[in-house]
Lab assay of single mutants.
Amino acid sequence: VLKALERTRQLDIPDEKTMPVLMKLLEEAGGNWSYIKLDNYTALVDAIYSVED
């Protein structure tokens, strides 16, 4: 979780936006981090930006 938060902080995305999206992605992935961690957490960042749209 810390590495995911560090990555999104680099992009000026607050933890308050990151955590709900991260928890949803983890739930959808059955707790499997490998998809979320791919390409420096690209799936997480993309999911956060899609929620903002």
Results as ranks from 00 to 15, higher is better:
V45M: 07
S50K: 14
L44C: 03
V51K: 13
D46R: 14
L5T: 03
E16G: 08
E52H: 12
R9D: 02
G30Q: 12
K17D: 07
M19R: 04
L38I: 11
Y49A: 10
T18V: 15
P20M: 13
E27G: 09
D46Q: 15
L5P: 01
K24V: 06
I36H: 00
Y41F: 10
V45K: 03
N40K: 06
L11N: 04
P14T: 06
A43V: 11
N40Y: 06
G30E: 11
I48V: 08
L22W: 01
A4I: 05
K37E: 15
P14K: 07
D12S: 14
V21R: 03
L44H: 01
L38W: 11
V51L: 14
E28N: 09
N32C: 09
R9C: 06
D12N: 15
T8W: 06
N40E: 07
I13R: 03
K17I: 15
T8N: 01
E52G: 12
R7Q: 06
K17Q: 10
A4E: 05
A4Q: 03
A4G: 03
L38G: 09
P14C: 06
G31W: 14
D15W: 05
L38N: 11
S34W: 15
I36G: 01
P20K: 12
L11R: 03
A43D: 02
I48T: 02
W33R: 00
E27W: 11
D39G: 10
Y49Q: 11
A4S: 03
E6A: 11
A47Q: 06
M23R: 09
L2Q: 15
D39I: 03
K24F: 07
T18K: 02
S50Q: 13
Y35S: 13
A4C: 09
D39Y: 09
A4F: 05
E16Y: 13
T42Y: 11
Y49F: 13
T8C: 14
G30V: 05
V21Y: 05
K37R: 13
P14V: 05
D15T: 02
Y35G: 11
D46P: 01
L11M: 08
G31S: 06
L2V: 11
R9L: 05
S34L: 11
L44A: 01
Y35C: 10
A4D: 03
L2N: 12
G31M: 08
A47L: 07
V1K: 05
N40C: 06
T8S: 05
W33P: 00
T18L: 04
R7C: 09
L25A: 01
D46N: 15
